[in-house]
């Protein structure tokens, strides 16, 4: 503005003032202003030139983001929310609400951390079962307490499936041992675990049960084919122990 008011500096050619001044070696000193008596010339750029300059992208210092023509529902919703919240947040009441929300969030995080450290499962308070992916198969498929052993063994014998019949006979023994409280039945226990339990609760039956367990292991897990004679002998041994157990006084099973 000052330059415009002062008028253009002479582009070339000596002025009267310049002519009077002696030549100087130091050219870094600014030339003196023209005398104040000179009339100020106000330069006005041409309107067409101004419009041209305004239209140039390089001279646009404020970038205006154009909204996409096809904004999604989510974008429009966010924009609307922002427009609603901005005035509220800038007000005194809005600032207070923001403070309350922030401190509330901090308090909730603290409570959550304390509950976690104390190992409190808060999901149960809302009646939700603990997490865990469902398994694609059944864990327990057979309950020895619901089987009709006499009938099942007879069917297996009739079908010539001696291996299955011997297995059912062994399971019947386990049920009898459980019913008489010589062992404590649990689906995850192995035959050797029951053998140790029986050794503690009914030592007299330990050797016989150990041998029957061995026979069952070889026949069932070892897939040993059983001849008719061998099956009859093994089955007789099972029945012999069953009779012995029936005559024995009830035990008090203790986990091995």
């Amino acid at each position: 503005m000052l330059l415009l008011a002062a008028g253009p500096a002479p582009a070339q050619g000596p002025t009267a003032w310049n002519r009077l001044a002696p030549p100087r070696a130091d050219t870094s000193v600014a030339a003196p202003l023209p005398p104040p008596s000179a009339p100020a010339v106000v330069r006005r750029p041409a309107a067409a030139r101004l419009r041209e300059l305004r239209g140039q992208h390089d001279l646009q210092y404020v970038e205006v983001r154009e909204e996409p023509a096809q904004a999604s529902f989510w974008q429009r919703l966010l924009r609307w929310l922002w427009r609603q919240l901005t005035p509220a947040m800038s007000s005194q009441g809005g600032k207070k609400a923001w403070d309350v929300f922030f401190y509330g969030l901090m308090a909730a995080a603290l409570v959550f951390a304390v509950l976690k450290l104390l190992q409190v499962d808060i999901t149960r308070a809302f009646g939700r079962a603990p997490r865990g992916l469902p398994l694609a198969y059944e864990v327990g498929q057979e309950n020895i307490h619901e089987l009709n052993f006499g009938e099942a063994i007879a069917q297996a014998e009739a079908a010539g499936n001696r291996r299955l019949a011997l297995r059912l006979g062994y399971l019947q023994l386990l049920k009898q041992l459980t019913d008489r409280d010589f062992i404590s039945w649990q689906p995850d226990k192995t035959n050797q675990t029951y053998l140790r339990e029986l050794a503690a609760s009914y030592p007299a039956g330990r050797l016989a049960f150990a041998e029957l367990t061995r026979q069952f292991d070889y026949s069932w897990y070892g897939e040993l084919p059983l001849s008719a004679d061998l099956y009859q002998q093994a089955r007789a041994a099972q029945q012999q122990l069953a009779q012995q157990l029936a005559a024995a006084a009830p035990g008090r099973a203790q986990p091995a």
């Binding site: 649990q186 995850d188 226990k189 192995t190 050797q192 675990t193 053998l195 140790r196 050797l207 016989a208 150990a210 041998e211 029957l212 367990t213 061995r214 026979q215 070889y218 026949s219 040993l224 061998l230 002998q233 093994a234 007789a236 041994a237 012999q240 122990l241 986990p255 091995a256």
Partner: peptide, 26 residues
Amino acid sequence: SPTPPLAPEAAAMPAAATSDVPAEAF
């Protein structure tokens, strides 16, 4: 319910001790 190795008597016990089943059968 510890599960140590198979009781030796279960693996090597003579069957005649408890039944008429020959030991070599199983």
